[in-house]
Amino acid sequence: MVGMLPLSQIFALRETVDQEWCSPVADAVGECWGLPAGALRFWRSSAAHVFVAPPGADSRGVLYARFAPAEDPAGYRLAEGARFHARLAAAGASVARVVPSRINTMVERIGTPLGDMYASVLGKVDGDELDVEELDGGAAAAWGAALAAFHQAAGQPAMRAQTKPPDPFAALAAAPAALEDPELAEAAKTLSTVLTASPATPLVLGHGDFELDNLRWTDGWPACFDLDESGAMPAAADVASAARDLLGPRPGSPEHPELLTAFLQGYQRISGQTIEPQELVLPRAAFAAQQLLQSTEVLDIRSPSVAWLKELDGSLRTHYQIQHDLLLMTADVLV
């Protein structure tokens, strides 16, 4: 999980979903892609709302419609990511098929019963979904090589080749959550100092969430999707985000060291850039800080009573606690 819609938006959308998993919100989106009412069925809501046109619903195959409120940061990220995705697809990169709308655009701003949404549609990516337990050294190396190939296909960012990334630790130290948690505030200040003292590194146009959930594998090579978190970032930051399941919850002690080594070797083979495991510790903590900064906006329903929403709220709180603990441990490791 990277970005996440607020629980209030997820609940509002789910309230429109009927017993057949259809929604008038999705119908408004589908109309722009020539889909009849009821063709799209609810799949999930996380960084965006996702509905699927199942097999047989459309001659273009299985389709995934993704949309988010246009006035929300999630909508902006979706729109920017979809445009970037379309550019990569046109260049022949290993990404999901982008399906143009009826007016031949890759992103639409659409009026719906829940307000304006930015939307895009992708074709289903054939292939297998792997989890960490199914990886061997060869697959891990291919995963790293595929991320390097993504960076090459994306080209160079428009900004300077080397620059300091934004400082999420300083923002977190000043956030209300840190004011109520002195230990978190102190750790964030410590990591901000470490980040400030770190040298600038080359930037890439990264995926931002190149984890296994967002890949499908065919003949030993993955195709990716969900580029909402894409943008200019240090290569090590994109690697740390992608490989966070290999890194695990204890900074400096990778949970799957052999697979991590294979991933980094695969990345180096294609990119020519050597990234050592210790270089991933600070960007992994920065990722945690970004998530903690978002948590207050995400957890915006007090004491949810609906069973599925209560379960989601609990799962998210557990996730954010893990990020909190990782950030504190990282400060201890790096001082």
Results as ranks from 00 to 15, higher is better:
residue 1 M to H: 14
residue 2 V to T: 14
residue 5 L to C: 13
residue 6 P to L: 13
residue 8 S to I: 13
residue 9 Q to V: 15
residue 10 I to E: 15
residue 11 F to R: 15
residue 12 A to P: 06
residue 14 R to V: 05
residue 17 V to D: 01
residue 18 D to A: 03
residue 21 W to N: 11
residue 23 S to M: 02
residue 23 S to W: 02
residue 28 A to R: 07
residue 30 G to P: 01
residue 31 E to C: 08
residue 32 C to P: 05
residue 32 C to F: 11
residue 32 C to W: 10
residue 33 W to K: 05
residue 34 G to V: 07
residue 35 L to N: 00
residue 35 L to M: 11
residue 37 A to D: 13
residue 37 A to N: 08
residue 41 R to N: 01
residue 45 S to A: 14
residue 49 H to Q: 12
residue 49 H to V: 10
residue 49 H to P: 08
residue 54 P to C: 06
residue 54 P to Y: 09
residue 55 P to E: 15
residue 60 R to C: 09
residue 60 R to L: 08
residue 61 G to P: 06
residue 66 R to I: 00
residue 68 A to Y: 02
residue 77 R to P: 00
residue 79 A to T: 08
residue 80 E to K: 09
residue 82 A to W: 08
residue 83 R to E: 14
residue 88 L to M: 07
residue 90 A to H: 05
residue 90 A to C: 00
residue 93 A to E: 00
residue 99 V to E: 03
residue 100 P to F: 01
residue 102 R to M: 14
residue 109 R to S: 14
residue 113 P to E: 11
residue 113 P to V: 13
residue 120 S to Y: 10
residue 122 L to I: 04
residue 127 G to E: 00
residue 129 E to N: 00
residue 129 E to C: 03
residue 133 E to K: 04
residue 133 E to C: 02
residue 135 L to S: 03
residue 138 G to C: 11
residue 140 A to V: 04
residue 141 A to N: 06
residue 142 A to N: 08
residue 149 A to Y: 03
residue 150 F to L: 00
residue 155 G to F: 01
residue 160 R to I: 02
residue 161 A to E: 12
residue 162 Q to F: 07
residue 164 K to R: 14
residue 167 D to E: 06
residue 169 F to G: 01
residue 170 A to I: 00
residue 174 A to E: 13
residue 176 P to K: 06
residue 179 L to C: 10
residue 179 L to M: 14
residue 181 D to H: 08
residue 184 L to E: 06
residue 186 E to T: 12
residue 189 K to W: 13
residue 193 T to N: 13
residue 197 A to N: 11
residue 202 P to N: 03
residue 203 L to N: 05
residue 209 D to R: 03
residue 215 L to E: 06
residue 220 G to P: 10
residue 221 W to N: 10
residue 221 W to R: 12
residue 222 P to C: 14
residue 224 C to G: 13
residue 228 D to M: 10
residue 235 A to C: 04
residue 235 A to M: 06
residue 239 V to W: 00
residue 239 V to E: 03
residue 240 A to M: 01
residue 240 A to V: 00
residue 241 S to A: 15
residue 243 A to N: 01
residue 248 G to T: 04
residue 248 G to Y: 06
residue 253 S to F: 14
residue 258 E to D: 15
residue 259 L to Y: 01
residue 260 L to E: 02
residue 264 L to G: 01
residue 274 T to K: 14
residue 276 E to D: 13
residue 278 Q to K: 15
residue 285 A to H: 05
residue 286 A to E: 09
residue 290 Q to C: 13
residue 292 L to F: 03
residue 293 L to A: 01
residue 294 Q to H: 10
residue 295 S to V: 00
residue 297 E to Q: 13
residue 300 D to L: 09
residue 302 R to E: 15
residue 302 R to T: 14
residue 307 A to V: 12
residue 308 W to C: 07
residue 310 K to T: 10
residue 312 L to W: 12
residue 314 G to R: 11
residue 316 L to F: 14
residue 318 T to M: 12
residue 319 H to W: 11
residue 321 Q to L: 14
residue 325 D to V: 11
residue 325 D to C: 09
residue 327 L to M: 09
residue 328 L to E: 12
residue 329 M to E: 12
residue 333 V to F: 10
